[in-house]
Design a protein around this nucleic acid. Structure first.
Ligand code: FES
Ligand code: FES
Lengths: 143, 143
DNA sequence: TTCAAAAGATGATTTTCGTCATGATTAAAA
DNA sequence: TTTTAATCATGACGAAAATCATCTTTTGAA
């Protein structure tokens, strides 16, 4: 469904969003430890998120990564799109060059319903909402 | 979403299912031409489907591949499972080792709805139904 | 200056995707 | 019957992408 990079990205953003108000930044080491991801690979992913203006990075001692916007205004779909692109939202399930109703693949109609369901969920689920479940103890970032 | 191998598999099975009753088999060349897939790679995929008892193969001149069961009793989910395994149906969206309600990941609840929607669609959509759309001219196997 | 931390470059490893050469089987032709 | 050609079967190989690791450079605080 999602690439590993995308999974790490969502978990990392979620963890950053769980930080208390008085702590606005967190380093790579802590992130990759908390979400149980390879450190170097995570670094690359975070850099993509910085380039996409979802995160801000601060260099030097006491540096780290911080959310660029409010967590209630960042949605999972933005993260997925930044890492995996929009193929999940607009691509054909069976590999046709363009997905559109005028030249539908064998499963276009049925698949479009699923895809729209998924896109709707991702575009309306905010990081704040997800982070709340983690802080709450109802959901988990690692096995 | 699906791997390329899985996409080719679905399209190949669909094409075989579109054959008229008086023609029960079709060769690799024709299949890969009709679904626009690399021939050698398609051969590998078809062999997996043969091993999984979804297809029967016949060697020699006028040989080819034929459906092993009735197209109305073969569902897309079986093809997906044969090629990509069941991770799409049972795996965690965010990479947790096991997906279950007792240790849910950050998006388990919302994602499970999507996943079940997808699984339901794949498990109830028969090859006959899909092939009908192709024979009908309403759907297409290639760009 | 010195040190910790992120950025950036580069390379290794693994998985996926795809090709090629060759063998095995069998219907059809000779 | 014997040969031929069409077809599937298989394993080795290679290219490309995804994934993960290491090293150097740059930055900024103390
Ligand atoms: S054309 Fe294949 S999903 Fe729309
Ligand atoms: S635990 Fe992640 S989807 Fe169920």
């Amino acid at each position: 469904m999602f690439s590993k990079a995308c999974k790490y990205a969502i978990n990392a953003m979620t963890y950053i969003a769980t930080l208390p108000k008085e702590r606005d930044r967190v380093g790579l080491k802590e992130i990759s430890k908390e979400i149980n991801s390879p450190e170097a690979f995570t670094a690359k992913i975070l850099q993509v998120l910085v380039k996409d203006h979802l995160l801000t990075s601060i260099k030097g001692p006491n540096g780290g990564f911080m959310m660029r916007g409010k967590s209630e205004e960042i949605f999972l779909g933005q993260i997925v799109e930044a890492i995996d692109g929009d193929v999940l939202f607009t691509g054909c399930a069976l590999g046709l060059e363009h997905c559109n109703g005028h030249h539908p693949c064998a499963v276009h109609h049925k698949f479009k319903a699923i895809r729209d369901h998924l896109a709707g969920m991702l575009m309306t689920t905010s990081l704040k909402e997800v982070a709340f479940g983690i802080n709450n103890g109802t959901n988990f970032l690692r096995s």
